[in-house]
Nucleic acid binder design. Sequence first.
DNA 1: CGTTCGCGCTGACGAGGCGTCATACACGTG
DNA 2: CACGTGTATGACGCCTCGTCAGCGCGAACG
Lengths: 219, 219
Amino acid sequence: MQRGSRYHGGVSKVDLSPRPVETMSPRQLERRKHLIDAALTLVSETGVERLQMKQVSERSGVALGTTYRYFSSKDHLLAAAASDWRAKLMDDLAAELRGSVPVARGSERVVRFVRRGMRAFQRQPNLARLLVTVSVSTDPFASEVVDAMAATGRASLLALMPDVPPAAREVVPHLIDAAWQSELVAWVTGRSTIADAFARLDEVIRLVLAPYGAGSVAV
Amino acid sequence: MQRGSRYHGGVSKVDLSPRPVETMSPRQLERRKHLIDAALTLVSETGVERLQMKQVSERSGVALGTTYRYFSSKDHLLAAAASDWRAKLMDDLAAELRGSVPVARGSERVVRFVRRGMRAFQRQPNLARLLVTVSVSTDPFASEVVDAMAATGRASLLALMPDVPPAAREVVPHLIDAAWQSELVAWVTGRSTIADAFARLDEVIRLVLAPYGAGSVAV
DNA sequence: CGTTCGCGCTGACGAGGCGTCATACACGTG
DNA sequence: CACGTGTATGACGCCTCGTCAGCGCGAACG
């Protein structure tokens, strides 16, 4: 009875906009994944600014027109790809942290986490750039995705600082995330080096977490 | 005797790239200004994404090709325009602050400053958007301009917090600026409302400046 | 005052990329 | 087996950035 969900009177054209992901057949989900993977490969090889929709479709063995049945625009595809990569990255990071001995205390844990994140960006500058591109996109889907990414990022940070009191558990991760984002942008646009970014982030984190340290954190 | 400054052997083309601003005649500086003003007007009317170089040239009474004798690319023009607007804005802000009674103490002064800044952005959403666009641009000139803007911003902030000790006079403005930038982006991309931005910024500023307050600042 | 010289202005045009849509196809249904 | 719905295809339309061959105007000179 989903008839009527789309207006069909007169000479109106057929609806070509992407169906929701949930309603896709396995075959279609596979295609969708191929598109995202192709986009990520191409971006990491040549950078976002050189990415062409035609290339993506060729690489993934799909016609150009078909691409637009999965992603309504280039921005949409980029956002999906960025989100995908970020998710993979966070998984890796989490696994890595679980593996290592949690010797670090207080701000040290956070510092390490952020450092590893930055290093991952450093390994894939073009994908880092993609992340920045998407995060300033006005595409509604992109905004959604960015919001979600930011939320998980803050959650991860929060998990690393159990000593922060309830009153500050909202602001502090927010603040560190903002600083991180800021350094990422500065690096990606060539305004600062990775080393500078590391140094400033360390300083910021120590400053912000100083009040909640186990009393042993040097400033 | 500035002959020889440009190589002219063989069939090489004439140099069409923009001359440095300092070497421009008054007439040319005027043209340059017209271009920037036209760009700002058009951006504030229709948004960056709709801005066309052709429009800019028509609005400013200059041929399209001439535009490229003043700005080597669209990004270059946008960066110059953004910088121009930011400068005007900061002047206004400074004047406004000088006019008002400096009753506020500690973090309160900074909060007010940031609030006024955000309100200026709110009055010109399209120009705020321009600022964000330029700040993530990889154009070298844009990076320079953004760096300069960030530096003056931090200086203004620093001037409002005389009680912060030397050890923190680098980080703290940096941090507040990062938070500000972050909220600006979130607002411009439709991820948060102005009210939310205000609230979070207030909280951040109070948190960061709490240790240096005159002892009377409530958290 | 006429002529020459060249710098800077002009705008039609080329190149390149996003997204559309007329067409073809595949698969399930009567 | 004929039919119809939903999906895939890719040539092409349209739009905008930036170029470049030519022109005009002012300065310098005879």
